[in-house]
Design a protein around this nucleic acid. Structure first.
Lengths: 257, 257
DNA sequence: TTACTCCTACAACCTAAGTTATCGCTTATC
DNA sequence: GATAAGCGATAACTTAGGTTGTAGGAGTAA
């Protein structure tokens, strides 16, 4: 943080994975575009759109989803400030899922055309991008397990607890209760349940004192209790660590002079 | 294919994504280890094992799964010859899922310690690895949709059809029926169903003339019919194409002389 | 061969979750 | 300020899929 780029969202995100050289930091900063804003419920991109790059979330919540033939929708993931979205499609020419803002949101674009420069000039940055996608995949795997083999109570509790953990990574919140801008409809589509059944399950959790609900929000009152219900084991959320960065056989940059 | 490395599984796989320079080809070949074999039902690695690298499947079928606290199991994906497995964990020190052989199998290891060399010496190879993981993610997303929002009939048909498409990519099979080494138990764990219900659903498909079953095998008789049942749209399986490779602003290699 | 295990089929029964509908309560829209 | 649209709670009813149990066949080891 010796340079004046501490406020860049992408630099901050990358530095949570690896120590960056001054050069890497400046490269990232120079390639990132200024922030853009979306209002609540705005579509950030749609499935099939040209895939123009990835975005770092500076403020607000967004979620990725797929619309199905029969009119239903599957929410693939929910993203919070600090997360990177859209890296999934970087190797595709079009978006493979849609992205919507769950609240007013502010994202910093990183154009795809700049990625080749990153790959060519820094092994550290290249590895870091890999680690970010690896973490994303780990979360997707856990989502698969959630959808395939858990009851409604477990699904809901697990999802909420996971998000709260992901929030704490960047927010460093001390309190054991926090508020999430998630409607029951979004949760239903994320968990493969009906909205009615999500409401029923919330009713149970409420009478058990685990959480409060209302107004497109969920307030987690007893996160440990929810973890018990979910059988939550958060090790899949741990920071990936690559030996590539611990014992790099090359200098941190392999670019030409 | 001008050099004598046509028989390398990893080179062949990478070349299905991008044209490789002679140098890239030789680099890959020099870093790949010789094939290792596993018998049917052998554990290739377990969740928590040290993550030593990735493998290209030369022969046989394998599947990735997670064991849950309550004794159930979620199959995450099934892999066929030509597929690359284990790239998911390359940024983790330990495996985040287990891998088992569904039939006698032969895989070629690519040690993780060699990846840094690849990243440092070739933008083409680095991008290709990215495209491989991107395709893998696209398949996972489709699996999410399958688990979250489809009926048992749709789930089963979709899964079988997807695998048959993935097989055809490497096998170039002309026939419209093919045999898969999948037991009903494995399918149940992949689809989030009970084995009994998989059996019931197979009974329906059998009377409709869509497939035959028996002896830990499934024979797809009418793939188009199954695609109709599944509402299958295979575009997520299409080869990812990166503009990085179409319009590379750098020479194909950025390594030092 | 026996004995064992694994896979599959199928029947009977059960329950978790879906569906539909009604009624408030907010939050937008004009 | 009125109307509309969306969200949440709850009740009544339905159903897809889970569970348990039995039985036969195929592969495997002694």
């Amino acid at each position: 943080m010796s340079s004046g780029v501490g406020e860049s969202c992408i630099v901050r995100h990358f530095e949570s994975y690896a120590e960056l050289s001054e050069k890497d930091r400046r490269l990232l900063l120079s390639l990132e575009d200024g922030p853009r804003t979306w209002t609540k419920n705005a579509i950030i991109w749609s499935q099939g759109d040209e895939s123009d790059g990835f975005y770092t979330i500076r403020k607000g919540w967004v979620c990725a989803f797929r619309d199905l033939q029969d009119g239903t929708r599957q929410v693939l993931d929910v993203y919070v400030p600090g997360d990177i979205v859209g890296l999934r499609e970087f190797a595709f020419q079009t978006r493979i899922s849609s992205m919507i803002a769950l609240s007013d949101a502010e994202l910093c674009p990183f154009p795809k055309s700049h990625l080749a420069q990153v790959f060519a000039s820094s092994v550290t940055l290249c590895s870091t991008i890999f680690m970010i996608t690896a973490r994303d995949q780990a979360i997707l795997l856990e989502r698969l397990v959630n959808l395939g083999r858990r009851s409604a109570r477990e699904k809901l509790a697990h999802f909420l607890v996971e998000i709260s953990h992901r929030l704490q990574r960047t927010n460093a919140q001390v309190e054991n209760h926090l508020s999430l801008p998630l409607s029951q409809g979004v949760l239903a589509d994320a968990l493969g349940l009906s909205a009615v059944h999500v409401s029923r399950t919330f009713q149970e959790f409420r009478t058990e004192g685990l959480l409060e609900t209302g107004n497109s929000h969920v307030v987690l009152l007893d996160i440990e209790g929810l973890e018990t219900v979910a059988g939550f084991d958060g090790c899949y959320l741990e920071q990936p660590v690559s030996e590539l960065l611990l014992a790099d056989p090359h200098p941190s940059s392999a670019s030409l002079p």
